[in-house]
Design a protein around this nucleic acid. Structure first.
Lengths: 257, 257
DNA sequence: AATCATGCACGTTGATGCACGTTTATGCAT
DNA sequence: ATGCATAAACGTGCATCAACGTGCATGATT
């Protein structure tokens, strides 16, 4: 094995601690600290980035943006991955549909894939998504109190508004996607809202970065089997989605970035 | 690597924070601050501009402007004048108020003057205004069908939503302001919406660039006497506002640009 | 034997500062 | 207001060096 005192997993756990503490790590520093080559550190960081545990940058790595960060912050996290997911998801949108996009950073990326030629109506509780779409397609805004962490209107008024709609397709933002736990969220009111609109929709689709697969956030939204389609990244681990497939959920893989 | 303490992405993230905070950055200052050459900063800014994260200008960069479109076209029309009006208007906003900002480009400028320290709740039918405010203050979103020319939700659903509110202060976007014609708008549904929310508010204030004074758009909103305050530019012609003053409307002049 | 973790070699890529001709903004004179 | 000179800022091309990822060999472990 190595002359270093650390097993791979230990080393990576330490790196994660450092990322959590200072927000960034330098490859050179880590190599010295762990008494390994920079090659090894780079492999670690690459592997961690592939698992969504850091952002790989020239010279080292940056902390991933926490999934509980406010919407406008989450939007800046892993944009290329979200764009790839968004492109794949947008292919499920057909002309004349009423599509619902709830407040999620990947849904903003999907909104940015929707042009006037889609010929759809989009309903959303997220002001940012409405802004992205209103010049291109018809937009129905869900009113109510805006929760800045969620990035959209949730709560009684928003649910009342959304309760007037029956979307053809609901594209659901998910904080966690797991065969057993289903689709989950970090905020209670967000989870309530998502569940309500999903159950009013003819079809439900969700998207998940590698980081979210096999994870569960604190609040249940819906079971995974209530979701017709799951869009995953091109390199999502087959193991992670095997049980989801077994529940009859159609898997769509995004293109390689 | 670099002799600087910052990874590229960190540097650009800081630049984005500065743009968000002050609306502009100077290349020379950034080079000193980050201990890199101005060449490097210029490359950063060029790259960020290409990604839509800033506007590249001689000497530095400005905060990005969203895509051009009807509402957004109005936003980019005479921004300095609107900012001056916005600053003057914002001084009428007091802590704990429920303020209503309908969809207007000057109201977006006003939204951008409102920080968390205002301690207010803002209700709006404009997604772009909600997006600008949701990180700073409590935002109540008015739902309904978004009219892209208006830049906000109007019509039956929006009126129904707004009908639940009684704002302390309604800041009304005006397309025309005239002693005889009063406050007028270019779209019928927009005029209906404005009238409804103005009449539910304790106080109404409006703003007018020199261009709008003494003009009338096709659809009546309210009479000028129903408006307590009118914010005009520092150089607004006394002749143009004389009759408005005679109707008991308080005039506030914006600062010189 | 197969697998995993590691370091090495090497060609490629990325970030940076320098040089330099071009462009822009500014101040001054008319 | 216009024209001119000047200095600062600009973008392009280039050289340099560090960082990068890939392929491979090696040693340790199962």
């Amino acid at each position: 094995m190595t002359t270093s005192d650390f097993l791979v997993q230990e080393r990576q756990a330490r790196i994660r601690e450092k990322l959590a503490a200072s927000g960034r790590v330098l490859a050179g520093d880590l190599a010295v600290e762990f008494s390994v080559s920079e090659d090894t550190i780079r492999r670690d960081l690459r592997e961690m980035a592939a698992a969504g545990l850091c952002q790989r940058v020239y010279g080292g790595a940056l902390a991933p943006i926490p999934p509980t960060a406010p919407f406008m912050e989450r939007v800046t996290d892993q944009p290329e991955r979200k764009r790839a997911l968004a492109r794949a998801a947008a292919r499920s949108i057909e002309p004349a549909m009423l599509v619902f996009l709830d407040a999620s950073s990947t849904n903003l990326a999907i909104a940015e894939e929707i042009s006037a030629s889609f010929g759809v109506t989009v309903a959303t509780n997220a002001p940012r998504i409405a802004t992205a779409l209103m010049e291109s397609v018809d937009v129905i805004l869900i009113g109510g109190m805006v929760d800045r962490r969620v990035g959209g209107a949730v709560g009684g008024k928003a649910s009342s508004d959304a309760g007037l709609l029956r979307p053809d397709l609901c594209i659901l933002g998910a904080c966690g996607v797991d065969a057993e736990a289903g689709i989950t969220a970090f905020q209670l009111e967000d989870a309530e809202f998502k569940r309500m609109i999903a159950r009013r929709s003819r079809a439900v689709m969700t998207t998940a970065t590698v980081k979210k697969l096999g994870t569960a956030a604190p609040y249940d939204v819906i079971g995974i089997a209530e979701c017709e389609r799951l869009v995953v990244e091109h390199d999502a681990d087959g193991e992670a989605i095997r049980d989801i497939v077994a529940l009859g959920v159609e898997i769509i893989r995004a293109d390689k970035i």
